[in-house]
Design a protein around this nucleic acid. Structure first.
Lengths: 260, 260
DNA sequence: GTGTGCAACTTGTTCATACAAGCTGGCATC
DNA sequence: GATGCCAGCTTGTATGAACAAGTTGCACAC
């Protein structure tokens, strides 16, 4: 497991190219062979090669301009969807020892924001879970999650020290995360944050709120994750062709009578 | 300007689909017509339609699974590359009044980090610019940028209140930003930050460091932008197929004897 | 030596086709 | 009435061909 490319030819080619970049065979700044050469080398059509290099381009590994050969931009691995949605999988891929502890599980009515994000009625109940997560023993993140009612039973059955909740509900109930929407900003540590993360009150935290959906578009959870400053950063690559990330105005930026 | 789709058929189709989603013709959760139907409607081949819907999928507007029709995920516009790299263009697109003031321009030797990021010799000189940026009169961001020597003359010639430096050097010198690499985390406000942003010292700031490159992969600038908490958030959509953003360990997470 | 221009190369876009893989709804069965 | 299965629909992968648009380096002229 791990290097399973799924059986698609273009994924195999993408993985081979990725490896040759990561190994330094194609150093940063070097030009890749032309699509025709690669197609001949792998005995596939040019379209298949384009799918492979398109994937690497979307990962930010290589860049391209019409007319010029593709260039290597970076020599690092970019992790997959799962690593952004699942703290545990990310940490394990990094080689850190990760541990988690659920501090509380409460069934309570959804807040206005939770109801809106999860697409449920304002008075319906959600399962609210507070968790502390550690890397190599150090508390690094506080996670406050609201689960929709239909996944709540699965989450309620898990032990307090479960490492990956998303993993567990995928295995136990076949509920798989497929889409994510993330909002990243900075907040001051509240008193609970400060106690749990062992930092001073009002010290800076990196906050990642995210909504997780199934493949069918059904919301699973709405989470507020707060990282101790210095422990985690987010990294994005973009290009004139593709910009995955967007800046958004916060609540303090008010622009006259247009609030919805 | 604005709705220029560049003349490619698939971009036209993508823009039309985007509009029909934004306008609510295809509400969130609705299923889009099949690729064959769209191809017939637009009198193009299925491959061209796939390029269009692939673009919308990468923007997070629609999702797809093999065998099932595509689904509308969101009903908001995702902004382009320029809005992530250029604060001014983002703010103007939002309808905010943006103003900037350059506080200092210094030519000095590059720090170790700057030299490494910009790919220049450790002792070479960079142009270091400190700027405050306001939205609707409120100071929102402090920007500290190191420009490589070869763009420094263009930047040195600009007035203190230039709105968009990237825009200006594109127009004046034909130097266009094409790739970007961004690192996002949280830091405590230093005394200069606090004074310029009118916040308390050590209050939380959202930091976005980024490297900007030309189409040929030549570094232009290395920037440290710090936003007042609450004024700006970053937003990402991802899916099991594509994950543009990555979590990274910060300096405080040390993992035994493996430092590079 | 310098500079210009073109020719070959390379990526971008589009077409038409074929088959594989996964989903959905309706029909038949129990 | 509930259940399971299958036929048809839809997306994913792959081929091969052709032309458009942009880049690069070499040859040639000055």
């Amino acid at each position: 497991m791990g290097s399973d490319t799924g059986g698609s030819r273009y994924l195999e080619i993408a993985e081979a190219l990725r490896q040759s970049i990561l190994s330094g065979e194609h150093p940063v700044g070097a030009r890749l062979p032309s699509e025709s050469d690669l197609a001949a080398h792998w005995s596939v059509s040019r379209g298949t090669v384009r799918q492979a290099v398109g994937l690497l381009a979307s990962e930010g590994l290589i860049g391209s301009r019409q007319g010029a050969r593709r260039v290597v931009l970076r020599q690092e691995r970019r992790h997959s969807f799962q690593q952004l949605n699942s703290f545990a999988q990310w940490a394990q891929a990094m080689g850190c020892e990760v541990s988690s502890l659920i501090l509380s599980r409460t069934t309570r009515p959804a807040t206005a924001e939770e109801a809106s994000r999860l697409g449920v009625a304002p008075d319906s109940e959600v399962l609210y879970v507070v968790r502390v997560r550690r890397l190599d023993g150090e508390p690094v993140m506080v996670e406050r999650t609201a689960y929709t009612e239909w996944v709540a039973p699965v989450v309620r059955a898990l032990p307090d020290d479960v490492v990956s909740i998303m993993n567990s509900i995928a295995e136990n109930a076949g509920i798989v995360a497929h889409y994510g929407e993330h909002l990243i900003d900075a907040v001051a540590a509240g008193s609970e944050d400060a106690r749990l993360l062992r930092v001073r009150r009002a010290s800076p935290l990196l906050r990642q709120r995210h909504l997780t959906n199934t493949a069918a578009g059904r919301p699973i959870e709405w989470t507020d994750d707060r990282y101790r400053a210095g422990s985690v950063a987010f990294s994005v690559s973009n290009s004139a062709a593709a910009a995955p990330l967007e800046r958004q105005a916060g609540p303090e930026v008010t622009r006259g009578p247009s609030g919805d």
